[in-house]
Design a protein around this nucleic acid. Structure first.
Length: 425
RNA sequence: GUGGGAAUAGCUCAGCUGGUUCAGAGCGCAGGAUUGUGGCUCCUGAGGCCGCGGGUUCGAAUCCCGUUUCUCACCCCA
């Protein structure tokens, strides 16, 4: 029996759960404010959803998918990202016939077969939004606003928001012609990957880290300078709204992203504080043709995703604490003899019925040890059960934080009990 | 898929050029000192096939090879 979780996966427990809950709760509060509703899609889809959605020429589809055949011979794939599934669901349920825009958010685990390293796992969690059916640049800015607000609420400050436009179908085609003719004389000098990209997806050459390739494209025309008048107007309006909102950003003309479905506005948010090369915390963009391409109606759309695990990493690194929604009041009940289990049961039942979290020492131990345990585990109150309490029915409740003590009569009405407890906070 | 480093107790690690102080420390955990009251102190205890497999050797935690996992980077992304 192998007792380690598979490569690139991990168990999330203890403090990580608190960070995670904090991030998710912060995001959910914002989603509510922006009127998005949740969608939960399956962890796997028909392989075609990603093949056609993300694009066959992308690295993700080519070499990073967990694809398997089920017992009926269907090809299925564990989702490597969230957008394709959500788009599939929007079309399947004809959500656009209820209202437009369709504004959805999702939280889920994603799977990519890669070599794990800091901030990159084979199974990881993302949360994201998709706003489908609106072409106005206003919604681009609003979506970026949400993205920015999530990190703002968490407490990140030194983030960089990068924006670019990769143009619409038409202007991209024109640009690619210009770009290819510019680099054509040098194509033999490219790295093997870029030689392939030259034919399949020239824009991705901008993502290449090989010095030689970077040099060749250094002075090349950038797509941002070659987008058509409509696309230019669109991105300028997005920038205008961002400025009105006071969101800092900068145009990064070389920015490209790894999914084929993007059109027009794309963006990425990175942290220079993240002690890792994997510094992208979130990103997204427009996908104006994807829904139609999937057989749905024409629905220009935009979305983003953020990496929950990387966000936790950065929070830990910057020493940012999570806020918990846990009740601060919790009681620890100590037994001084094993005669008192029945009374212990009665007290815990009473407290729990009154919404006061509590735990009990399952073993009889010296009183001082039990207090130590209660303090260590962060209980605010301590109740010992011994002969005196049994006789009188009155329990001394010790407030471990304030070093005070009060009496609790377990024959009091429930209302009284919670009142007495709360007043001691 | 490519390249570097690492793996000893729950955690952080020590363990020299192979040989009865080589199965160790600190922290944590459990119990006690303490038969009804707090973070200290002291005592005691549990826990490891030294990642796994092979090799070299009279003898391997230690040297060699393989493998798995972790880690860092490339690629790519969140």
């Amino acid at each position: 029996m192998v007792l380690s979780s598979p490569r690139g996966t991990n168990d999330v427990f203890g403090e990580d759960i608190k960070y995670r809950d904090f991030i998710i709760n912060s995001a959910k509060d914002l989603f509510r404010l922006f009127n998005y509703s949740e969608i939960i899609t399956p962890a796997f889809e028909h392989t075609e959803v990603f093949d056609r959605g993300i694009g066959k020429s992308t690295d993700i589809v080519k070499k990073e998918m967990y694809t398997f055949t089920d017992k009926k011979g269907r090809s299925l794939t564990l989702r490597p990202e969230g957008t394709a599934s959500v788009v599939r669901a929007i079309i399947e349920h004809k959500m656009y016939s209820e209202k437009i825009p369709v504004k959805l958010f999702y939280i889920g685990n994603m799977f990519r077969y890669e070599r794990p390293q800091k901030g990159r796992m084979r199974e990881f969690s993302q949360l994201g939004v998709e706003a489908a059916g609106v072409a106005e640049p206003f919604i681009d800015a609003e979506v970026i606003w949400i993205l920015n607000s999530i990190f703002d609420r968490i407490g990140f400050r030194n983030l960089k928001l990068m924006i670019n436009s990769v143009g619409c179908e038409k202007c991209r085609r024109d640009y690619i012609r210009v770009f290819k003719s510019y680099i054509k004389p040098e194509v033999e000098s490219f790295c093997p990957d870029c030689k392939v990209r030259y034919d399949t997806n020239p824009l991705r050459i901008f993502d290449c880290k090989v010095e030689q390739c970077k040099k060749i494209i250094e002075g090349s025309p950038k797509i941002y300078q070659h987008i058509c008048a409509d696309c230019r107007e669109h991105i300028l309006k997005v920038c205008h709204y961002l400025e009105k909102m006071g969101i800092n950003y900068f145009i990064k003309e070389e920015l490209v992203r790894g999914f084929d479905y993007y059109t027009g506005t794309i963006f990425e948010i990175i942290s220079d504080d993240l002690e890792s090369v994997q510094n992208a915390l979130g990103g997204g963009g427009r996908y104006d043709n994807l829904i139609a391409q999937f057989g749905g109606p024409p629905m220009p759309s935009i979305g983003f995703a953020i990496g929950i695990d990387r966000t936790i990493l950065l929070m830990r690194q910057l020493n940012i604490k999570y806020l918990t929604k846990e009740l601060k009041s919790a009681a620890y009940i100590a037994l001084l003899s094993d005669k008192f289990y029945d009374t212990g049961l009665k007290v815990t039942k009473l407290l729990r019925e009154n919404n006061i979290p509590c735990d009990i020492s399952y073993k009889v131990r010296p009183l001082s040890s039990q207090i130590k345990t209660a303090v260590r585990d962060g209980f605010s109150h301590f109740i010992a059960i011994g002969d005196d309490e049994i006789k009188t029915g009155v329990f001394n409740v010790k407030n471990l934080e304030k070093h005070t003590q009060f009496k609790l009569n377990i024959n009091d009405s429930s209302k009284n009990i919670s009142a007495v407890f709360r007043s001691s906070l």
